[in-house]
Design a binder for these strands. Structure first.
Lengths: 149, 149
DNA sequence: TATTGTTATACTCTATAACTATA
DNA sequence: TATAGTTATAGAGTATAACAATA
């Protein structure tokens, strides 16, 4: 059953290019590539966008909190925030009660930039998801959230 | 509408961690990490596995063909095949009719190794897909193949 | 001139380890 | 002793560019 679907690449006997891992890599690479291409003129990458997105609701988060949510290394977080700060999009502020910690605040400039950058990101996502119906997009989101860990 | 679904992480106002791109990155990173961890003791990575998988049906492919299918750079392909050849798992053979090209053949050792490595990869994929029903796995595969490009 | 493959090199992203300053 | 953050460094993974041999 399901020997060869209509959409199957001809070059593959099903050994590799049909595997979920392979498709996942392709999809991720394509999405990330287009997103970074759109973000590069602004000297930002998906990491910066993710941080700004998390700060957008208004409340500042400490680097530790950002690290916990985004599951990236603390040194990587330093670089992300350094760049955001360099561009005046976010700033480190002291946390009362713990002089080791910094709360990261989105500046007004950061908020404005996020509006632009977020729009570009949505355009990319829209192109990426173009082959899917709204219902399929929802399905994909739900399936991915189950396996994303 | 859709202000906050039941499965939403609390830390995010929907700005970032719900995005498909974010979930895609997470899922891909998790899958790739586990796969590479399983492959590392064998001095192989997912690229080597993909090449071996493509060669498994028996017919050799030239580096150009592999490059076209896997969509990676030709210099990256050189490194992948160098390592496979170094381990005796594949070999470059001259192509009659074009002395520039090499056809890559899977050796018997490569075939045996692929059986082992492929088994490990399937185990990883099984753990990765564990949260999904068989029907959901099929859905995920089909949705990904639509957006994988 | 164009193409196959190789080599050298560089870039992005991320991680590890040693460090400072607090706790 | 442990934690927040920084710095220096290294490692994947991939890409670019110059090159040799051949088409």
């Amino acid at each position: 059953m399901a020997r060869r679907t209509k959409t199957a690449p001809a070059a593959d006997g099903g050994a590799a290019t049909h595997e979920i891992g392979f498709l996942l890599q392709r999809a991720h690479r394509r999405m990330r590539g287009e997103l970074n291409e759109a973000l590069r003129p602004l000297n930002l990458n998906v990491g910066h966008l993710a941080v700004m997105g998390l700060l957008f609701n208004g409340e500042a988060l400490t680097q530790q909190q950002l690290i916990g949510i985004l599951e990236i290394d603390k040194s990587s977080m330093v670089y992300l925030i350094d760049e955001l700060e360099r561009q005046g999009l976010a700033e480190r502020r002291s946390v009362s009660g713990d002089r080791r910690a910094y709360a990261i605040h989105l500046t007004d400039a950061g908020r404005q930039r996020l509006a632009v950058v977020g729009g570009a990101a949505r355009d990319v996502q829209e192109r990426f998801l173009a082959p899917l119906t709204p219902r399929q997009r929802m399905q994909l989101r739900e399936l991915l959230s189950k396996v994303a860990g």
